[in-house]
């Protein structure tokens, strides 16, 4: 050991190195710091014994307590399910109207419905069910496939234009794209459709359009354009338009015949969740 080099000003030992005449003090670490440092080492050794710690080739050391966060989560989830089991069972048995008239059951269904709506429905229908162009607004009183609790439950279960054999099915032909109608005819029928909600004044075009409508549209939309829920055909005489209500919007819909897809939720969601969703959607304000 070389002789200790002590700084004469501070009386503290130096590291012994020198850089351009500058020497570094070798100030010892504070005792409290060292104490904590050694305590953490002791703690770590104890931790290796008690808790899972070291990775091995095929696994890891489990520790005396055999602790597992995965097991904790599984247990917590199981406890949550258990706490809901009684209400879930009642929900399973109860009819939809019974749910709506029982305050406790309604509260449970609304809570579950709201969560399920946020997880599954909000991406298309919006977090408040407000919809968007092409995605129906669930708050209003317009329903393509019916707005009773049962109708809503069925639509959610089978979906629209989806994979279920029972799925709600309707197809508006693409009159323009597929060449079924000529451009002028589409213009005329657009004027007629506008006139159903009192928004066109071109009497001649309306008269021509009425003929085209009678030949091509009445089968689904009805003679006065009031729609038909059996086919999911929308009412053309009201103020609500899934793909927009301007002249251009209506014209483009006749040309392209767009129709969205709603997934078949039966099988993906439990029947109880679908019930809860139906009750929730019904309560948004438009339920019949």
């Amino acid at each position: 050991m070389s002789k200790k080099d002590v700084d004469q000003h501070s009386g503290t030992e130096t590291t012994g190195h020198e850089w351009d005449g500058i020497r570094e003090l070798n100030t010892p670490l504070p005792r409290w710091w060292l104490g904590i440092f050694y305590a953490t080492i002791v703690w770590a050794v104890g931790y290796w014994v008690v808790m899972p710690a070291w990775p091995l080739v095929n696994g890891y050391t489990h520790g005396v307590l055999n602790h597992s966060q995965r097991a904790d989560v599984a247990k917590a989830v199981e406890m949550l399910k258990a706490s809901r089991r009684a209400s879930e069972a009642r929900l399973s048995k109860a009819g939809l109207t019974t749910i709506q008239n029982d305050p406790d059951l309604l509260q449970f269904a609304m809570a579950e419905g709201k969560a399920a709506f946020g997880d599954n429905c909000a991406p298309c229908h919006g977090s408040g069910g407000q919809g968007h162009k092409g995605y129906p607004n669930l708050n209003d009183d317009v329903w393509l496939w019916g707005g009773t609790l049962g109708d809503i439950q069925h639509t959610i279960t089978v979906g629209v234009r989806s994979v279920s054999p029972d799925t709600r099915q309707s197809q508006m032909p693409a009159f323009g794209r597929d060449g079924i109608l000529k451009d002028a005819q589409i213009g005329d029928v657009t004027e007629f459709v506008l006139s159903l909600s009192g928004r066109s004044a071109d009497a001649k075009a309306i008269a021509r359009g009425k003929k085209v409508f009678a030949d091509n549209c009445v089968a689904c939309h009805g003679e006065r354009g009031l729609g038909n829920r059996a086919f999911g055909a929308p009412n053309l005489a009201d103020r609500d338009w899934l793909y927009g209500g301007t002249r251009e919007d209506i014209r483009s819909q006749i040309e392209l015949g767009r129709g969205g897809v709603m997934p078949t939720w039966g099988g993906r969601l439990s029947p109880e969740t679908i019930k809860a969703l139906a009750v929730y959607v019904h309560s948004l304000g438009g339920g019949e």
């Binding site: 919006g126 408040g128 069910g129 407000q130 607004n137 009183d141 009412n235 103020r239 609500d240 438009g286």
Partner: peptide, 11 residues
């Protein structure tokens, strides 16, 4: 309600 802000009904 802010979401939706308001709802226009069929009539």
């Amino acid at each position: 309600d802010r979401n939706p802000n308001f709802v226009v009904l069929a009539d």
